[in-house]
Amino acid sequence: MRLPTSRAVKSTALTAAVALAFALSVAPILHLMATVVYRGATVVVRNFPSILFDIPAAPGDHQVGGIGPHILGTALLTSIAFAIGVPISLLAAVFTAEAIRRWERMVGRWTRLLVHMMLEFPTIVIGLAVYGVMASITPFVRAFVPGFRPFSLLSGVVALVLVAAPYMYLQIEDGLKSVPQHVREAIYSLGASRFVASLVLLRYLKSTVYAALSIALARMVSETAALFFTAFGSNVYPPLDTDSLFRPVGSLTLAVYTFGLSGYENWIELSWAASFMLLLLCLTLFGLTKLLLRGERRGLRGLR
């Protein structure tokens, strides 16, 4: 039998150390997820399905009620902000990455600088800035739209776009910039206009685009700070009229925060339920993206 050499000992020790470090770093995440799932799922299951539709019960009540308005609010805020943010980011990224004329390249440089700065802003500052703008234009806008308010679904949407669009823009822009020059030349040499060339290039970058969009969507879903002064939060359903765009609206993240800090047992339960719904939503998004990307790769393989 051979004695283990010092190198083998060192290697084993290092492997063990790495394994330990890994375990130590994932343990808190797993614990967090387990807690949220355990405490949140308990509440959701016990009150299923009314918790998905009802409004919260009064604080201190023996019932919990539900987080219906918050789920609806998150759905409205994210879907509208996504529908506005995606085309803006795509167009801006294409414009600056495919800039040709000198002034276009200049605009591109300034845009990139601005976007990098926006990504560094704390999102609560973005929310505050949106509130400031909305509040200052309110008197003028009211002349045309009497129901206009600074705390509103609209403000929330604007804030979410400002939080997530810079991220999408940078990811897609970086992707476009990283396309090798000879590939770009190939596409343009066929007589492609910038619009057509961009479509071909975005198709070439499909997985980058998917990843950017899904991460941006997850950021919108989980954004909290930017909504404090904009969407503001609400525990009731907005009435379905033309003014609902200008009324405060709740969100799952705001529900986690306000119910969690409330000190009433039944509301704290709602907070756990909202956390669980958020986690579920983000994991679903994550899974869907993975699935999409895998389908994409398999599609390519199937062609061969």
């Binding site: 590939v183 190939a186 040499s189 071909v200 198709r203 070439y204 390519l300």
Partner: peptide, 11 residues
Amino acid sequence: MVFQMPNPIPN
């Protein structure tokens, strides 16, 4: 144009 380096669009 046929470029000096072969440049098919790889995907």
